[in-house]
Simulated scan of single mutants.
Amino acid sequence: MNPTSARTRRPVRTRAVSAAAAVVLTALGATALVSCDTGSDDTGAPTFSERPTAPDASGFTGELPSSVASSAAAVVESARASASSAAASASAREAERKASIGAEIERSRQQAEDVLKGVQGQGNALGEVGMTGKPRAGTGGVLAVVLTITNKTDEDASYAVQVDFLDPSGKVVETQYVGVEDLEPGEREQPLVISRQPPEPVLTPRLTKAQRY
């Protein structure tokens, strides 16, 4: 063996061992720094901790707490009750309005019938009343006519009108009365008269009497 070569290799091995030792010491020093508790150290050195992990969302159901859910349900139920009450109130008002209109029409009809009971012939206002039939397509198949009542005098006046419905043989099968009150001079109203008879047989409306009073 060459002595020179052995001496040459020895320092190399020594340097390698020294380098390895330095790496181990460096690693140990780093570990000591990481595990050191600096809670009471005033040097301001940073504290290291493990990386935080995301929360496990698999246990969440997406449901509100019972108290919140109960409160929300109460609000919804209250709103529903209020809406139902408002609808019922509106329906009641509409029913009252229709009942009022119906009562007024019936009162006017009855008054017209009473006025015409004592009238002989066709009355004194037949020339102030016109009659026009309405197409059955627009009335659901029922027979209806429109009266045009015009006050042609120079004073306020009320009118009572009788409309008869005749079958094909000329027999009166239905009579309707219409009243219009307190028309000013030149004023006109157009009440609707509807037959309550079936569509068949076809009836013919006739303006029978009209009295101004």
Rank of each mutant, 00 (worst) to 15 (best):
T175E: 09
A16M: 12
V75S: 14
T139R: 02
V76I: 04
R109M: 09
A99G: 15
L25V: 15
P201Y: 08
G186L: 04
T38M: 05
D56G: 11
S71W: 04
V12C: 01
E128N: 13
A112I: 04
V193K: 07
N124Q: 07
T61Q: 00
E106Q: 07
T139Y: 03
P11W: 10
Q122V: 14
R212E: 07
E77K: 13
Q122M: 11
Q111H: 11
L207R: 08
L28T: 13
A144H: 04
S49C: 04
R9C: 08
P201N: 06
S40K: 10
A57V: 03
R206P: 03
L166M: 11
A45C: 01
A157L: 06
L166C: 06
Q211E: 15
R136F: 14
F60Y: 03
I149S: 02
T61G: 00
L192M: 14
G62H: 00
G62L: 00
S5C: 03
A27D: 04
L116C: 05
Y159G: 09
A144D: 03
N2S: 15
F165P: 07
P191E: 05
P65A: 00
V193S: 08
E96Q: 11
R206T: 05
A27W: 06
E113W: 02
S84C: 07
E113P: 04
L192K: 10
Q110K: 12
G170I: 07
N151T: 10
T14H: 05
D167C: 07
A160R: 10
V178P: 04
V76C: 03
K98S: 10
V115K: 04
G130L: 08
G138P: 00
S158Q: 11
K171Y: 11
A144F: 03
P205S: 02
R212K: 12
R109H: 08
T38R: 15
S5A: 12
E184Y: 07
T43M: 03
F48R: 15
A22G: 14
A83V: 08
A160S: 10
S108K: 13
Q211Y: 15
S70M: 08
G59F: 14
K152N: 14
L28W: 12
L64C: 00
T132R: 09
D167I: 05
